[in-house]
């Protein structure tokens, strides 16, 4: 398989399959995410959405198919290398470093931006100080953006749930990703918080040129912000299209509501 394929889309997934023993959890899923695009993956519970995510983000090594990001195959790459290419994700459950402070969560996510030389760190060379300062500045910028600046020195585990969700997105953004993968970011949020999240996600695309791959059950959110939607049912691709096309697609309605 060639390492590099010509491609126009940012992320290109072809024929993805994932087998757990006898269970084929994902079978033949294909999807594309273009630059500055919000793509949602939807489907009934147990459809394999999260498994698709886990394969793309390097959490699992898929048993078949190609995942090409910026023209480079990322099949079997170590997780930290995938993230250094610019793909970063959140999980269904909040996975902050809960015993670290809010700002430390953002600083540790920028670990790779700073010179990795241990001696430079011990002697605090000017370039090291400058990089460290840039990390702090970037962290503060994002804390302001998600309205958490006043909690900067609070332990992350002590934040309210909605705040933890926002902090997770900020933590992804300080890594300066090209593709942000959000797994049910609105789960457990109240309607007001969901609206704020909606605005935040759109702003990430509009103002920071980030592409977003989203798994979400909140159909209002999905239909409102997605450029395209991929529907998966029982591990297999069911439909792809714009929100309007998906809304009227009889197969999708059947998958969600059952045979009438």
């Amino acid at each position: 398989m060639p390492k590099s394929l010509p491609t126009e889309s940012l992320l290109k997934v072809r024929d993805l399959s994932m087998r757990f023993g006898g269970l084929l959890a994902v079978d033949g899923v294909a999807l594309d995410v273009n630059e500055r695009e919000i793509v949602s993956v939807i489907g009934p519970n147990g459809a394999g959405k999260t498994t698709v995510f886990n394969c793309i983000s390097g959490f699992y090594t898929p048993t078949g198919g190609d995942i090409i990001y910026k023209g480079q195959s990322i099949h079997g790459l170590a997780d930290f290398k995938i993230s250094r290419l610019g793909m970063v994700r959140t999980f269904q459950h909040v996975r902050l470093f809960s015993q670290m402070t809010v700002i430390e969560n953002l600083l540790v996510a920028q670990h790779r931006h700073v010179n990795t030389n241990l001696l430079a760190g011990l002697f605090k060379t000017p370039s090291y100080r400058q990089k460290e300062q840039e990390s702090i500045d970037r962290a503060i910028y994002w804390l302001k953006k998600v309205n958490l600046l006043e909690f900067a020195n609070r332990e992350a585990g002590n934040l309210a749930y909605g705040q933890q969700r926002r902090l997770e997105i900020a933590r992804c953004m300080v890594t300066e990703p090209g593709l942000l993968m959000l797994d049910e970011p609105a789960a457990g949020l109240n309607p007001k918080e969901t609206n704020e999240l909606d605005a935040l996600i759109v702003s990430l695309k509009e103002d920071y040129n980030v592409s977003i791959l989203l798994i979400e059950h909140d159909m209002g959110l999905v239909m409102g912000i997605s450029d395209r939607i991929v529907v998966i049912n029982q591990g297999r691709p069911l439909a792809t299209g714009t929100p309007n096309e998906i809304r009227d697609n009889p197969d999708v309605i059947k998958a969600y509501l059952g045979e009438v």
Partner: peptide
């Protein structure tokens, strides 16, 4: 795992 996904070796 999360540290790895955030780019820490």
């Amino acid at each position: 795992k999360m540290a790895g996904l955030l780019g820490i070796n």
